[in-house]
């Protein structure tokens, strides 16, 4: 039997198996920690920092930090939630997120987090960067205006030989997600659909289909993101 450890989150006593991440441990205890770059079944990367918690006086990402016995975790506090909100605001200003014109509006995780944290306006200056749209692939369309560089597509979409279909191209603020032309041209319908689903925003869209779900039936129309957790 696996070792069982005890930890607290915002003072609530919880138990978990040794060796799993703080994120997994809290989810098993029906507690919500917001995530964005994390995706179930994909190795955690800790790049978006939305799941930041504080333990032992240090900020850490819940998706990559293993839970330990006796750990005291701060999660749903005013300070940490404001920090998370500021990350969402930064993502909004550093891309071009025109929600009213986006097909993924209502199903977008970034937007849903903004709703959950009641972002009325970002506190930072809008950058309006020049970004590309790549319509070269027959099955999917890439709109880099909305890409938040979470790497979910790069990490999860692999061909039968395990090669990544997507990759980062250039560096720093010029970095962009690029579809490998050769692997992309052989993209199966299944993988194309998976890449659309795995993108948390509207950066990867299916071709020849649009606005598939009517307003009112979209994922985050009625319930905030994270509503499946009790706390």
């Amino acid at each position: 039997m696996a070792d069982i450890i005890n930890f607290t989150i915002d003072g609530k006593e919880c138990v978990a198996e040794k060796g799993i991440s703080i994120l997994q441990a809290t989810q098993e205890n029906d507690i919500y920690i917001p995530t964005l770059c994390n995706y179930e079944g994909v190795k955690p990367k800790g790049s978006c920092r939305i799941c930041t918690i504080r333990t032992n006086g240090q900020f850490a990402t819940a998706c990559t930090t293993p839970v330990a016995d006796g750990m005291e975790i701060e999660n749903n506090t005013e300070e940490i939630n404001d920090l998370r909100k500021s990350i969402i605001e930064l993502l909004f200003v550093e891309g071009n997120h025109f929600c009213p014109a986006c097909e993924m509006s209502g199903d977008c995780e970034l937007q849903a987090l903004a709703y959950r944290f009641q972002m009325m306006v970002p506190r930072f200056t809008f950058q309006f960067p020049k970004r590309d749209i790549d319509a070269g692939n027959p099955k999917i369309l890439m709109d880099c205006n909305r890409c938040i560089r979470c790497k979910r597509c790069i990490r999860a979409i692999k061909d039968e030989k395990g090669r990544s279909v997507f990759a980062f191209y250039r560096r720093g603020e010029n970095i962009k997600v690029h579809i490998d032309p050769e692997l992309g041209s052989k993209l199966t319908d299944e993988l194309a659909e998976k890449s659309v689903t795995i993108c948390p925003v509207g950066a990867i869209l299916p071709r020849e289909k649009g606005f598939r779900i009517p307003i009112g039936q979209r994922k985050f129309d009625h319930e905030p993101i994270g509503s499946e957790y009790k706390h």
């Binding site: 909004f92 071009n96 997120h97 025109f98 929600c99 009213p100 014109a101 009325m120 306006v121 970002p122 809008f126 309006f128 960067p129 020049k130 970004r131």
Partner: peptide, 19 residues
């Protein structure tokens, strides 16, 4: 009060901003 997306973040007219 800013009301609506255009007042808040530029909206549709701001599509020209990167150009």
């Amino acid at each position: 009060i800013s009301f609506g997306e255009c007042a808040i973040m530029g909206g549709l007219p701001a599509y020209r901003n990167p150009i």
